[in-house]
Amino acid sequence: MNAPRNTQYRHLEVHKIAGSLGAEVHGVDLSRDVSDQALAELRAALLDNLVIAIRDQNMTPAQQLAFARRWGEIHLHPFMEGMADYPEILAIIKRPTDKKNFGGSWHTDQMFSPCPAMGTMLYAKEVPSAGGDTLFTNQYLAYDSLSDAMKTIARQLRTVCVGDNFKSANGLSRKDRYSGQMSEMKVKDPGNVQTTSVHPLVRTHPETGRRLIYIGGHVQHFDGMTDEESQPLIDFFMRQSIRPEHTCRVRWQTGTLTFWDNRCTQHFAVNDYPAETRIMHRITVCGDQPF
């Protein structure tokens, strides 16, 4: 049985993926100049569902970039090399010989930046015959389902987020971790770009006004606390975030562009296709300072 269509949209067809978050969108051609009315409905669908999978697209890199720019300035990844002709686009490629995949842990993009990405657009160029899905989780629900006492505690905490030398990787750099495991993902020196930032654990979404738990794999410890003091609380809030009832799963098809609100979600790229290739084109849109 097909998911019910949301009838508030006039230019799009929007069908929910799960009760917690996520929707499939049909009825728009992103290779063309999207009308202001359709763009407004796409923004509404994103704010309502947090993750939208726009199916059946056929886009060049230039067309994907033009669509992304309708949402804001493009956020360049400080550690990863973009495409030669389109440095704003990160080609995420996993070959059958690669052991590691890109994004294979729960996280929210660019959390280590002072102004993390507002959203991420991932466009499927080649997908495995099965597997390679992406999991998403609703960070509003992670906050809403806390007790009042824990909400009060959470609102007092600030996270220290880093872009490299993760504690979970025993202090190894991205270059060391990726070398020999991801053949086509090229690491660069971030130069003087700030890649360690402090953010509130409880963030207020700038468009919806709702509170949420803002946490992910870039969090190293809480500001003013030791690692030993921080880790049990980090573990608790991560478990709270990824409870099954807070999640959805996007199954990729070639030509799907999935756009997620980076401010109120985490995601996890599943590495379950060892003998096949997966090629995606990623663009991140600039965001604002969490508050």
Rank of each mutant, 00 (worst) to 15 (best):
P116Q: 06
R155C: 12
P190M: 04
R95C: 04
H221P: 00
I54N: 05
M238V: 09
D272E: 13
V202A: 11
E88V: 05
S129E: 13
H107N: 06
M1L: 14
H205D: 07
R174M: 14
A53M: 07
V187N: 09
G180N: 10
V219G: 00
Y143P: 00
G216T: 02
P96I: 10
H199T: 06
Q194S: 14
G132Q: 06
H267M: 03
D36M: 10
G180W: 06
W252T: 05
Q231P: 01
I242L: 03
T247D: 01
S147E: 06
F291E: 14
A142S: 06
M1K: 13
H107V: 04
L42A: 03
P200C: 11
T196P: 05
A117S: 14
M80H: 12
V14K: 02
P78Q: 07
G132A: 12
T108Q: 03
S20L: 08
W260D: 00
Y178D: 04
V187T: 13
P190Q: 08
A149V: 11
S179G: 13
G22E: 00
A130T: 11
S20G: 08
E88Y: 09
M111P: 02
R177C: 11
H107C: 04
R243S: 05
P244S: 09
S147V: 08
I279C: 12
F222H: 02
Y178L: 15
C161I: 01
Y123D: 02
D272G: 08
